[in-house]
């Protein structure tokens, strides 16, 4: 632990795994941080994306996949951010290509920040996806979008309660009117630079039988790869027979994720206490 600490004493180093990101088709030249954007379809995700990137964006395909991919860029606080729009999905647990692309990017690409766009008017169905993302990554910001629409419908969302329950910052926005975008940029920047360290509460309780199976595999994973932050998620994916994860365990590629998480956590854990809203 002490070794890791001295290696990564830099407060503002990016956390992403450059090698994996390049494999996933992200050109990192000239960028300091990588932001991924996840969310359900029809949540105004592309509006948030547009509001963050302006017109500096381009679309293409994910490498080897017939899934559209949008990329853009923005600067904040003197840092250059690359933002990758993940396909809009209802879940991350199924076998569809969209979901595979999204979950592999968050797990293997290790984006510095993942923005989860949720629709304030249908919070319940959107939180389902948010909870899944938070199983994979700690470094997330929830963008509570469409608050204007929610207001019209007489729905009030208390973002402080939500932030406390989830353990990650929640930023209310109405992206269509540009409301809350500055705040979102600031929060993304704080999480990206490590000023703010989200600590998601992984509170989802499974059936005793599944819980037992997950712990068995997760324990085995943790004792082999000390510091694997999302061992439970990896264990769950192994139980679901996800071939990408099976391969990553076989080849030891899974270790590339750990080193980063370990260094990040070794260094930033103490600062987190008071910064979570």
């Amino acid at each position: 632990m002490t070794a890791a600490r001295s290696e990564t004493s830099c407060e503002t180093c990016p956390i992403h795994h450059a090698g994996n990101l390049v494999k996933l088709g992200v050109n990192l030249t000239g960028f300091d941080y990588v932001v991924a954007m996840a969310g359900n379809p029809n949540t105004g995700k592309s509006t948030v994306f547009n509001a963050l990137t302006g017109l500096r964006q381009h679309t293409g395909n994910w490498p080897g996949k017939t899934v559209t991919r949008a990329e853009g860029a923005f600067s904040y606080g003197g840092k250059r951010y690359k933002i990758v729009d993940l396909p809009g999905t209802y879940s991350l647990l199924s076998t569809s290509t969209d979901e595979e692309v999204a979950r592999d990017f968050i797990l293997f690409g290790q984006p510095d920040v993942t923005v989860i766009v949720v629709d304030a008017t249908r919070l319940e169905r959107n939180l389902n996806l948010a909870l899944q993302v938070l199983e994979i990554t700690d470094r997330a910001v929830v963008c509570l979008n469409l608050i204007d629409e929610a207001q019209r419908l007489g729905i009030a969302v208390d973002e402080r309660t939500l932030a406390r329950d989830l353990g990650v910052p929640v930023v209310p926005t109405a992206a269509r009117r540009g409301i809350g975008i500055q705040n979102l940029l600031k929060t993304v920047h704080e999480v990206g630079t490590g000023v703010l360290v989200p600590k998601p509460k992984r509170i989802v309780k499974h059936s005793p039988q599944l819980e037992g199976a997950i712990s068995q595999v997760a324990d085995a994973l943790e004792s082999r790869f000390a510091g694997l932050a999302n061992a439970r998620w990896v264990a769950l994916r192994l139980l679901e027979g996800d071939d990408r994860i099976i391969q990553a365990v076989t080849t030891g590629e899974i270790a590339s994720i750990i080193r980063l998480s370990e260094s990040a956590f070794g260094e930033r854990m103490p600062a987190g206490e008071e910064t979570v809203p």
Binding site: T89, Y90, S91, L93, S94, T95, S96, R125, N128
Partner: peptide
């Protein structure tokens, strides 16, 4: 996938 999609929804 059909079952999963229903549950995802």
């Amino acid at each position: 996938p059909q079952r999963r999609r229903m549950m995802d929804l």
